[in-house]
Amino acid sequence: MPLRVLAVDDEPPALEDLTYLLCGDHRIGRVLAAGSSDAALRLLECEPVDAVFLDIRMPGLDGLDLMRVLRRFARPPAVVFVTAYEDFAVDAFALKACDYLLKPVGRERLAEAVQRVAELIGGGPPGTGGAPHTGRGADAADERIPVDLGGVTRFVSRDEVAYAEASGDYVRLHAAGRAPLVRVSLAVLEERWAPHGFLRIHRGYLVSLRHVEELRSDAGRWTVRVAGTELPVARRHTRELRDHLVRWAPASGDGPS
């Protein structure tokens, strides 16, 4: 079914441009518009939507606050932030936003965000999308993490991450040949990603079980190879890692042999 979306921006020209682009996407059947968070909430009382394309800096209730309200809905819409500011990408990640677009938004980049919404929603009717990152099941959908690369916000897919490495107050994500830093603790990632096949193996490392290639013991010292890199395994995590690898491989079909 065509998607029903709501665009929210307090600047009329920006709101007009955004609604124009959204209306031009064949996957969208209806576009509602609101000039403030309060107006958006009034609209949503009468017309549920699949996704909200939301500015962040607005007077009164800003975009981040509005998303916190939307998350309390019985059936929260997916949220795509559309903003001129890079500073809020980490906060958007923490709130599990579907995507994060920087103004001015091009048609191609917006189309990517719409595709992501469509995949998460799974083609259901308006208002049935669930939380922003629940498409193929409550814990199955991928998650994208905003990272700052030379002043440009890019996104790294959680499923691409082979392992995460603690680096002071940051975490370095090792994914597909890239290793960006993100401002989040390893403990937070461990809690969030444990249901998705990630396991803490050391105080400094969180690994994706699907990317584990080998587990080895040498004179009582355990190591694991992940995406071609050998990582230490703390003694207290060894048994848990072995048990998880045994369970993971038959279930996923693509775990270590």
Rank of each mutant, 00 (worst) to 15 (best):
M67E: 08
V8I: 14
S157H: 12
D142N: 08
R109Y: 10
H133V: 11
A194S: 14
H237I: 08
V31C: 05
V90P: 09
L61I: 14
R109T: 15
K96N: 15
V8P: 01
R172L: 11
P12I: 06
R247L: 15
A194W: 07
A89L: 03
E16V: 11
A34Q: 01
Y100S: 03
L6R: 01
E143D: 07
D99M: 06
G60W: 06
G63I: 02
H211N: 02
C23M: 10
A249V: 12
P256K: 11
I28V: 13
L70C: 03
A74N: 06
D218M: 05
D169V: 14
P195Q: 08
F198D: 02
R154K: 10
R236Y: 13
R221V: 11
R183Q: 15
C98L: 14
E213M: 04
A39D: 00
I28C: 09
L3P: 04
L173P: 06
L61P: 02
I201V: 15
Y20D: 11
L22D: 00
L241V: 13
P2T: 07
A7T: 07
T128F: 11
V184F: 11
L110Y: 07
R192Q: 14
V224N: 01
E160P: 00
L21K: 03
F88A: 09
R30M: 09
F93T: 08
L3V: 09
V224W: 01
A175K: 08
E240V: 14
L41A: 02
L70Q: 02
R192F: 09
D62F: 03
L120R: 13
V161L: 05
A118D: 14
V90W: 12
A194F: 11
R192E: 15
A227K: 03
F93E: 06
G122S: 06
P12N: 10
L44T: 00
A234R: 08
A234F: 09
P48Y: 04
V80D: 03
C23W: 03
L186S: 10
A140Q: 12
E213K: 03
L149K: 08
D254V: 13
H196W: 10
V49R: 02
V207L: 07
L32A: 08
C46M: 09
R239E: 14
V161Y: 02
E214R: 15
S37M: 06
G122P: 04
S167W: 10
L95A: 14
H244P: 03
R27F: 09
R144E: 08
S185F: 09
F73K: 04
V147H: 01
L41E: 01
L209P: 00
H196V: 05
E119K: 09
E160T: 06
A249T: 15
Y20S: 13
V212Q: 00
Q115K: 11
H26G: 14
L15N: 05
D243L: 13
V79P: 00
H202S: 03
H244W: 13
V105F: 07
P126S: 03
Y170L: 11
A251W: 11
H26F: 14
V188S: 15
I121G: 05
L199S: 04
L186W: 08
